[in-house]
């Protein structure tokens, strides 16, 4: 075993990269759930975003059209879910599961010609002074632009939900859709928009995986990241900062355990592989268990079918 092979600076630097796909998907799903909709199709939307983004980036030779295409693909797939659950009033759990299976199959189909292809590189942040700092530079200031984009998104979602009137209406719809309807808010329209936002975020998260983190296309490459994102939202008690903390914790431990595996630590690989899941769950359970009886947790209308009675 050789722990000195682990470079703490590199470890911290790769933490942010590793966490970003989950963070993107989770923050999107959080908005969806805040509007009272449970979309279990995150995994399917992520992988569809991953391949669509990859394909468009390769064809166009630039990562930006790819990222845009990934967001569009995720939102498009979520639109199917929105139509089924909000218009045809189908069961959200079953529809979400079907969406995941559909996304996995669809992405495999689209991805056939792209296996083994190398995508165009995406630009990294390069600020003359900050990026050249000895330790902080590589950890904080030399990442891909999308990493900072995801952080900005968390701040934006937090401010939107907390301070804006539209955010208040979105929370109200998730809290009591009947009352929101009685006050004249368009419950279905608001939920459509939230679901599409969640789809776009999941798609971006998938594209981050295939274009930036890995970067290449392999079938089923999201490997459960969408499910982790879903779990994070619950364990984070639907709070944006806890979603960020959970995602970074999960990303950090994933990177650490990979490094430990490489260093030949005398613990079975299986335990190391499961450690990110266990630690993330334990920490978030601890946080949410501290404040008992808080009524601010799950949106009260989460997963319930809304049907206007008149």
């Amino acid at each position: 075993m050789d722990l000195s092979a682990i470079d703490p600076v590199l470890l911290l630097a790769s933490l942010m990269i590793s966490a970003t796909p989950i963070l993107l998907a989770a923050i999107g799903e959080m908005v969806v759930e805040k509007a009272g909709v449970l979309n279990l199709g995150v995994e399917g939307m992520m992988i569809t975003g991953a391949i669509c983004g990859f394909a468009i980036a390769v064809e166009s030779g630039s990562p930006f059209p790819g990222l845009a295409a990934a967001a569009l693909a995720g939102a498009g797939l979520s639109l199917i879910f929105a139509f089924l659950t909000q218009v045809l009033l189908s069961n959200q759990v079953a529809t979400g599961l079907a969406l995941t299976l559909f996304g996995l199959g669809l992405s495999a189909l689209i991805g056939k010609p792209y296996a083994g292809v190398k995508p165009p590189p995406s630009p990294r942040l390069d600020i003359p002074f900050l990026s050249d700092m000895p330790v902080l530079g590589p950890i904080l200031f030399r990442h891909d632009l999308m990493v900072y984009g995801s952080l900005a998104l968390v701040v934006g979602v937090w401010a939107f939900l907390k301070y804006s009137r539209a955010g208040l209406i979105l929370r109200a719809v998730g809290e009591n859709h009947d009352a929101a309807h009685a006050l004249g808010y368009r419950v279905v329209r608001i939920r459509f928009l939230a679901i599409m936002f969640g789809g776009a975020c999941a798609g971006l998260g998938g594209a981050f995986l295939s274009l930036i983190r890995v970067p290449q296309w392999t079938e089923g490459m999201t490997a459960g990241a969408g499910w982790i994102a879903l779990a994070l939202v619950v364990f984070a008690s639907w709070r944006p900062w806890r979603v960020l903390l959970g995602a970074y914790l999960f990303g950090g431990i994933t990177v650490l355990q990979l490094n430990l595996q490489a260093a030949g630590l005398a613990i079975p690989v299986e335990y190391l592989s499961m450690s990110p899941y266990i630690v993330t769950i334990l920490v978030l359970v601890y946080i949410s268990a501290r404040k008992r009886g808080s009524s601010l947790d799950a949106p009260a209308s989460l997963g319930r079918v809304f049907h206007a009675t008149h």
């Binding site: 208040l168 929370r171 809290e175 009591n176 009947d178 009352a179 006050l183 808010y185 009524s295």
Partner: peptide
Amino acid sequence: ARRAGVAMVFQHFSLFEALNVAENIALG
């Protein structure tokens, strides 16, 4: 209706339990 000056108090309250009083009032 609200713009025309008509307001309504509902039988089953149209309130949001997890939100505070000011937020509930702002929504209406």
